[in-house]
């Protein structure tokens, strides 16, 4: 039953994948004038241009081009970097582990702290914690992540000298080093998500705590603490699951900025570099893989939602 449900949802993902990849692919159509001239620069020789046209398959009709590109993409062939000649797929997947670690920790920050603030705010209404939570939920969502990053660097790196301002150590190399290097970028990346989750979960939890079944729980002799954790939270989390999914997508998008600031060798940095180097195939590849990642996360979000809500029939 559940397997069938999974399969059905998976089939639903396919058109999304096709459309988003088509969007990514059609970036090339947006290049004004002759894309090859734009890619190679005004001084490129005619032979070089012709060779590039052939390599990119630009002589075919657009849908054929897309079909070919997609077929190759499925087989893990995203072409070669115009700038370095390195296969794009390898370049991107090689950096994916770094970005994944960063995004994962940032999501822990936003979900963990977001839940903490929302729950304490509901448990202690009109307390200091409640005001802090409300303040964060209003302010946090409006702060540019790169600015948060800089404020953190100024405070924790330059003033207190606790954590490094740049660089990244993978968890597989050195756990302590990993946490030292990942903390500031992860907080900067997760700050907005934390604010949004705090706000959303807080209002959702407040609403659920006024529900009839919570009153029933109290009438059974349940304590306030237990009524929040055992009865309110799981119901209140349902709409927030979607928010968390969106937060994941935003965090993946945000790596573009955060990895640049902290000089983290992940896919975000690769995307920025490839734009600055006019390495269009590389950019296409990075964006494609990141989008596929986002779609996978949305799919997982969907499944988690269904698992949390027994009213959804598989």
């Amino acid at each position: 039953m559940f397997f069938k449900f999974l399969l059905r949802r998976l089939i639903y993902v396919i058109p999304t994948l096709l459309i988003t990849t088509l969007v990514v692919f059609s970036f090339i159509l947006l290049i004004p004038g002759d894309p090859v001239v734009a890619l190679l620069g005004e001084n490129a020789t005619p032979e070089k241009i012709a060779q590039m046209r052939e390599q990119l398959g630009l002589n075919d009709p657009i849908l054929v081009q897309y079909g070919n590109w997609l077929l190759h993409a499925i087989h893990g062939d995203l072409g070669k970097s115009i700038f370095t000649g390195q296969p794009v797929f390898e370049a991107v997947t090689g950096r994916l582990a770094v970005t994944f670690q960063l995004v994962f920790i940032s999501m822990l920050v936003s979900v963990g702290l977001g839940m903490f603030f929302a729950i304490t705010s509901v448990y202690f209404p009109n307390s200091v914690m409640d005001y802090i939570a409300r303040f964060i939920s209003i302010l946090g969502a409006s702060l540019p992540n790169f600015w948060v990053a800089m404020l953190l660097v100024v405070f924790f790196s330059l003033t207190l000298n606790w954590l490094p301002a740049t660089g990244f150590i993978s968890i597989t190399e050195n756990t302590a080093g990993f946490f030292k290097t990942v903390l500031l970028p992860a907080i900067s990346l997760g700050a907005v998500g934390m604010a949004v989750i705090t706000r959303h979960l807080r209002s959702s939890l407040l609403e659920v705590m006024g529900a009839d079944f919570v009153r029933t729980a109290y009438s059974k002799g349940v304590s306030r603490w237990r009524s929040i954790f055992n009865h309110g939270l799981r119901n209140a989390m349902l709409p927030v699951v979607t928010t968390i999914g969106i937060g994941f997508g935003n965090a993946i998008g945000g790596t573009v900025v955060i990895e640049t600031i902290f000089a983290i060798p992940g896919t975000g940095q690769l995307a920025v570099n490839s734009i600055l180097q006019r390495d269009f195939t590389m950019l296409q590849g990075v964006v494609l893989i990141l989008i596929v990642l986002v779609i996978i996360i949305n799919f997982i979000t969907d499944i988690v939602y269904a698992l949390l809500d027994p009213r959804i029939e598989y």
Partner: peptide, 13 residues
């Protein structure tokens, strides 16, 4: 489908 793409990535592309 397009909404699923993080805005900053799309804008960047």
């Amino acid at each position: 489908a397009i909404i699923a793409i993080p805005g900053i990535l799309l804008a960047l592309g």
